[in-house]
Nucleic acid binder design. Structure first.
Lengths: 203, 203
DNA sequence: GTCATTTACTTAACAGTGTTAGATAATTTA
DNA sequence: TAAATTATCTAACACTGTTAAGTAAATGAC
């Protein structure tokens, strides 16, 4: 029954190919260009086949966001591991977050609903794999020592965390929509914001 | 030739009706529900008629964003006029910005490309009516005295302004996508962020 | 008032979308 | 080899934005 395994492996492969094809199409022609028939073309099948791997187009987008968050989490972990001091780690992580958004622009877009449909989608995500919940724990762990000697309540940490997140995400999305100001200015804003918040957190 | 005037007035009215109908449809069924045929239905015409008022669907969205920014600008002006101290004015304006985003959720979405298509659109906007350029002047005027006695360079003001904007917009969009945390927490974040930045600006 | 012209509006169609049902070809099982 | 299962495709449905051609109504000139 080794053939069963081979078939299962092939199925897993086309499942993956569908995602790859989708991302390729989006990278080439934007989110509007993404259609079931084009995906099918790319993987050399006809459209209905896709529905044996994903229940609908939304499921594909959902899987792409899942993939995106996994990648982001990996990047953040890597950034953290490059430093020892919590403050430095935090700074490196948010910088990595920023870099990810532009390196994987299309993924970031689907992750944070730069599209209405995705917006609805994000709300349908199972609690356990919510966007930033994965990273939340790590961040909180970092922020608490930074705020020492003051021992923050959970609420305090929460507020600081959301502020942090907002600054970065806001900067990114304004940059994407509003074609932002110069790259230098942007990086300046980013650094100012990060160090400013870290300073405001430091006890 | 008074009939000419009446006809022109009627035309202007249906032009407006198209926008109203669009907004109504979006408010009832989300951005996905918006279609030319549904708009036509709403204004009791057939679809092709719309193309005599707007060259395509994108033009309708563009006009909606324009309308949105005008409304926002009015709200901000009103908020400012309620205070005398620059710091208080600035705070009130950003609070008004926040309130607008949720009171006119659909407009805010089309304004800041919570949709890919809109994203592209925003880039096509004529320089003169760029999203925040209208408000820019007012903000800068406010920030300079706050930063006194230090006389900031244009770059410094720019960076502070962008930081401000990012915090608020980031908070809003994270809230919209990620169904945010509790309303109290959010308001806390908002106030913390606003007062924090104002404090960091104050010379 | 009649006729020609313009304007207002509709119907029909094209090419595309997501999605489903039914037919067909290929493979595996008995 | 025959039956049953699986893989795949074709055709269709109900939409989408958009355009071209046709029809009815209002307006103009004589």
């Amino acid at each position: 029954m080794a053939s069963k395994d081979r078939i299962l492996r092939l199925k897993e492969e086309t499942r993956c190919n569908i995602l790859d094809a989708s991302l390729k199409i989006v990278k080439e022609g934007g989110w509007d260009a993404l259609s079931m028939r084009k995906i099918a073309d790319e993987i050399e099948y006809t459209a209905p086949i896709i529905y044996e791997y994903y229940s609908n187009k939304g499921a594909i987008l959902l899987e792409l966001t899942r993939k995106g968050f996994l990648l982001l989490a990996k990047d953040l972990e890597a950034a953290k591991s490059k430093h020892r001091l919590p403050a430095k780690q935090l700074e490196a992580m948010w910088l990595a977050y920023w870099n990810f958004a532009f390196a994987e622009k299309e993924l970031y877009q689907v992750m944070y609903g730069v599209e209405t449909t995705c917006c609805e989608m994000a709300k349908k995500m199972p609690e356990s794999e919510l966007p930033m919940d994965l990273i939340w724990d790590v961040m909180v762990e970092l922020m608490t020592p930074i705020m020492a000697p003051h021992v923050p309540t959970e609420d305090e940490v929460c507020i600081k965390y959301y502020t942090f997140w907002s600054v970065i995400h806001g900067l990114i999305s304004i940059n994407m929509v509003n074609r932002g100001s110069s790259a230098e200015t942007n990086h300046e804003v980013l650094k100012t914001a990060i160090s400013g918040i870290i300073r405001s957190i430091t006890g």
